[in-house]
Write a protein that binds this DNA or RNA. Structure first.
Lengths: 337, 337
DNA sequence: TTCATCTGTGCAATCGGATGAAAATCGGTG
DNA sequence: CACCGATTTTCATCCGATTGCACAGATGAA
């Protein structure tokens, strides 16, 4: 790439009739610059349209306030309200902090360019313990998002996936259901694992069975949801309720049920997860578990930012509460059932 | 931020028993290094886990292969399959090119940190001519995506929005419709303007009227679509077909029509735009205009990359064709109409 | 008046690596 | 064996900022 002809700090110094040091001080808002000089420098900066060279600043100061976000590129996870919301929240948070936002979509092999960032947020990735450790070893601050590495000393911000799923299952139980199926998310993510765990805990506590045939494998894709729906339709006795690990999958299942001749929620109750806007787009408004994605993203960025300033900061494992949003897709089972 | 203790190129040189220059040459894959030395250096790099300091490289070489993507953060545009697909495609393209990907969500005021990138892709932003020009003036390559600044000397990659809308409108006309309403997208984007233009052109060529009351203002949000649907329902005579600037809005309108007692496509035909997966999720499979988002994103990144290597490269204005995808939501109007 | 304390400023070293020019090495030749 | 051209390596600068330290001049206390 051609080297651009730049106006350097030296040009500014010359124009303002002061030393380079003083210009640097003005740029970095040191309080110890006489007003007269400050004004002269600012004037020169404006006149020459001077922009400090980032690479030089970083090299000289040894700091880098770029935040990297590492997120899986797999379609199931990627094409979701969840991912959008994370991008948007992280992007806005970075903008507010005046920090650069480097995005890397991982396929599990490559990871963020460590040399380009001052810190990294890992979202939802689980098969990469060693990537995380690489950063840690290199002294780059890391914050995990929706992925609590229990045995690694890293800050993390997560949603209470287990608790949310548990609450949803308890709600269904409370309505009177006792044959409740569960559709998992992509089990490569910890969120999916935790939700399953929450479901199992609720069933167990209620003294209900949660045999393997009630646990249907999904991966957050519509396709996997359809397959799961077919299994539910074919099962005997048929479950009277289904707890699904994402709203998108849940909506697909609702469609499949209706196509299969069932009414929702009369014949089968469905509860989703995420509070994706899609909840409101179908034939029934979906009851779901709201997770505070925005808050999670903001907390993660903030935590990382603080850690970049003070690497020895105490480690935090933050877990944000979820909330059951009751709409129309779940009702007590029919008496006949 | 604390300065990290780094292994520098000098440490490697020492360990390998060669000069710094040689190490640099190995890193940068110069062909003129003896194999024996190359191996020694590579060995040392591995052993010391040496990572070249990016800031130093950029400062010394004056080059920066980070690609910035500037995209609006407004909800209507942001929460869409379209935006997801752009992120994903740009992200994957950058990864393949081994280029860093800096994302900036603009609110129209701030823009990508010019100092942090070697080039910028502007997506769908239109009220920012001066931002674009700032980059151009600073000598930073720019590529516009889905936004052809006709009077600025910039490369751009776009989808044939006008052509796509025109083809869709012609299809409806061909089916026999003559009262065809149009719902716009967010008119702050050029794509939305072009689609409207395509619709008007088709109507005009067919000798049909396209009075203002047939053009409904939308902004890519579901809410605006619902409002538009209500207007259609209330209109007399009621349009027999609606061409909508996005699938998401189209789906919402389909719901609204059904709730309003109309059948789709029997009573009213609906055609969308985007070929969003959502087309298949509703009560009728949506006929739509497919736009090659992936291809557009890849082309934009590639064009930018080439321009970063050769700033004097010829300016390209690429327009990618769209494709009408015929499904079930449009049919000839009822005879009675 | 003298010495200590502040303010503001500038000098020069430094960050880690790239690169043109000069020097060294090497195999081949006459 | 000296010489040559080609291939490798090294030397020395430079990239554009930051920053520790020295220092001049102002201020205040003793």
């Amino acid at each position: 790439m051609a080297r651009k002809k730049v106006v350097s700090i030296e040009d500014v110094a010359q124009a303002a009739g002061v030393s380079i040091t003083t210009v640097s001080r003005v740029i970095n808002k040191f309080p110890t610059v006489k007003d007269a000089n400050r004004r002269k420098v600012e004037e020169a900066v404006r006149r020459l349209n001077f922009k400090p060279n980032l690479a030089a600043q970083r090299l000289a100061s040894g700091s880098n306030y770029t935040i990297g976000l590492e997120i899986p590129r797999y379609e199931g996870i990627f094409y979701s309200f969840y991912a959008m919301e994370i991008f948007r929240s992280v992007g806005i948070a970075c903008d507010a902090l005046r920090v650069d936002f480097l995005l890397h979509l991982t396929d599990g092999k490559t990871s963020v360019n460590a040399a380009a960032v001052g810190g990294v947020v890992f979202a939802d990735v689980i098969n990469n313990r060693h990537h995380v450790e690489d950063f840690l070893n290199a002294g780059t601050p890391v914050v995990l998002m929706n992925y609590l590495a229990k045995d690694v000393e890293v800050s993390s911000v997560s949603v209470d996936n287990a608790g949310g799923a548990k609450a949803a299952a308890e709600y269904l139980i409370h309505l009177g259901h006792n044959r409740i199926a569960f559709v998992t998310g992509d089990m490569a993510t910890q969120a999916a694992q935790d939700r399953l765990e929450g479901y199992r805990a609720a069933m167990k506590e209620a003294g209900l069975a949660a045999p393997e045939e009630l646990v249907l494998q999904g991966d957050y894709s519509r396709k996997s949801a359809r397959t799961a729906a077919e299994k539910v339709l074919a099962a005997t006795p048929r479950p009277t309720a289904v707890l699904v690990s994402s709203d998108d999958m849940a909506m697909e299942m609702v469609s499949a049920f209706i196509e299969g001749g069932l009414k929702v929620p009369e014949d089968v109750s469905v509860v989703g997860f995420d509070d994706d806007p899609v909840c409101l787009y179908g034939p029934v408004a979906l009851t779901t578990v709201r997770q505070p994605i925005k808050e999670m993203a903001h907390a993660a960025v903030k935590e990382l930012y603080l850690r970049m300033q003070d690497p020895d900061r105490q480690i935090n494992k933050i877990i944000l509460p979820t909330e059951l949003v009751i709409r129309d897709s779940a009702r007590p089972p029919k008496k006949s059932a």
